[in-house]
Design a binder for these strands. Structure first.
Lengths: 208, 208, 208, 208
DNA sequence: AATGAATGAGGGTTCATTCAT
DNA sequence: AATGAATGAACCCTCATTCAT
């Protein structure tokens, strides 16, 4: 979001790498400056404090993920299955492709000062809300049969998030394959069984 | 494991709380001492460094979890379903009851010096191995039908681990209830369908 | 040697005084900073550690002495007597004028970490080598008759070094006078008796 | 001196080694206790403080050297040459045989608190006084011709002291040989030339 | 004669941050 | 837009010393 002046990008990249490697507290602003190829004072020209860098970083990460979700859902059909499929795919891809962006939010939330912490949590709730709404829709549509929608949602989200910690693009399984499998597992978790034999699962308008 | 002399316990408890709250790097050894009701130097009488406290903490956490798993599996029947049930229950209970023990290992692994990091990782592999073996058994027995045993395992573990981050004993759902639900979800994830009525099969959640 | 940026000079002076007074281990870097009129952290801006300050100090001392010797020998005639005269004078003057520079090297060698210790010892060997070469020359020229060149060299060096410990510029004897006497004693120790009247022999203290 | 209870000896030996290796300030009382094979508290039973250990150590060293000198001079004839010979021999042997005892006094004087420092200096003056008196005697007897008795004394003392820093019993030259050479050099330095042709340089009674 | 446990003072070092330029 | 120099607050850790036993 909020288009950053040039120079900000390099700093955020450097900070992301540094925070991801060592964590906020152990990261030093000197290291970040060095990684960004800037002098210490130059960094302070762009950001007023280490904390502000963290805030920008978390905002950026959340915005990028939000954008990815919105785009995916925007292109998905209206059915709960289609939407869950799209959201899981977007999430898996994001976690696998941007592991640092994905991880830092989870581990460094606590390093935010209270004010930003509240804001971040609010913002983040919207992330789980996306899943919640879709699962609810699937249940009320009769497509998802899980008796435990909350636990199902938590399971799916936890599974997707964990990908950032182990996925290796050079590993044995391609990202596309991982996406397929996690979508399948998500369907399994929500106990997806289409209510009836429609002609099509993907009507352009209206839900049967 | 390895019974600690008295005095160690108070320090470990204090350190666990401090590390869980702020993370290893941001935690100060003075805070730990204060929380333990000791002087700074008294702490150093028991542990030679902040790092050593962390090591003891992680060892202790892993040992406690391992013991819980071993006990649960020791009492479980031989079938894959029974064993998965037991392991998930043990894990859920541990994560819910000892959230700090559960979380610190994941977030502070990186704060270990390389040597201990290696040791910890090795030790931890045995944790996922327990799940892997059971799922494999279930598949070869024909009880678990999931086509994606690796992803299923990762999903179950991630779901259980996440419990440490949100479970509230005073919240709306009792721990026993949570245990039941997560066991059910785990069975769903591995697509548990007993091959046939066997002698010793005692499915907790009967799925047709 | 190696011209130091400004700011370094004040620190080295302060450190020299502090180390000379208390020794490396008992010296505190806070005292050094105070003596240099700097804040504690300013000192760390110039030197990365207490050890590095010591290294710079010893290097500086050795370099200054080396330079003094080289200059003196550069201006001396070619005969062994002239050269010994020049070297003793340079050494005596240096020890008397820079007692701290002279003493610290001897007493704080052991405070260097092994690597620098080796380097320092190597560098220092060149100092005794200067004396050794001159005495050998004197002997082979037939000007120095001592049967114990090694002990003679050690005696002269020890005598000169000790000056740093007792010389008082406001004491009863002027430095010039001290120089004369130590040169005379050095000649006595090597048993200087010019072989014969040569072209270039210019004995300072004529010993029949 | 002052016969020490048992246990003191082990501590002093340990402290001597520790102080000689690292210097007083860098030495730790724990190391001393460990080297002596005692517990920390046991050491405190014998000595009330680190400083007290140092005091005992320096007293012991000075006493031992004093005793060696007194014994040597007690057995020497009355002539200045005989007495200088005896004193140099005693000093050289002491420095070579007890390098730590010899060195610590010189380097750790400054670590004494002011009161003991004064006492030590007084005690030590008697050491140089021994040399001074003999040289004066030699000059007034007409045996020593040096025009610089002070510098001669300082040179001899410095030369002897330095032996502690380099003598290696397993090196190429035996201690007896070293003694001979240093006595010879001392005679050279004081410009010893017997006043007249006596029958013997070593009359049992009376100086011709 | 000896110990394990505990303490308080301080030491080296790091680091976010500021300031003059 | 950018820098080098400087600062002060903490932090980890060490160590001489003491105390209860």
């Amino acid at each position: 979001m909020s288009a950053q002046p040039p120079g900000h990008a390099a700093i955020l990249d450097a900070a992301r790498a540094e925070f991801a490697e060592r964590g906020y507290a152990a990261a030093t602003i000197r290291n970040i400056a060095r990684r960004a190829g800037l002098s210490l004072s130059a960094l302070y020209y762009y950001y007023r404090s280490k904390q502000e860098v963290l805030v920008a970083l978390l905002e950026d990460g959340l915005a990028a993920y939000t954008e990815a979700c919105d785009r995916a859902l925007g292109q998905a059909g209206p059915g709960a299955a289609e939407r869950l499929d799209a959201l899981v795919e977007a999430t898996v891809r994001f976690r696998a492709t941007h592991p640092a962006k994905s991880t830092i939010g989870r581990t460094e939330r606590r390093s935010l000062d209270p004010e930003h912490q509240r804001a971040y949590r609010d913002h983040e709730v919207r992330g789980t809300e996306r899943f919640r709404a879709i699962i609810e829709q699937g249940i009320s549509d009769g497509d998802f049969r899980t008796p435990f929608p909350d636990e199902a949602r938590r399971t799916i989200i936890a599974a997707c998030n964990a990908i950032a910690e182990w996925f290796d693009p050079d590993g044995g399984v391609s990202l596309d394959e991982i996406v397929d499998r996690y979508v399948a597992i998500a369907f399994t978790v929500v106990e997806y069984r289409p209510r009836r034999a429609h002609r099509s699962d993907r009507p352009i308008t209206g839900a049967g």
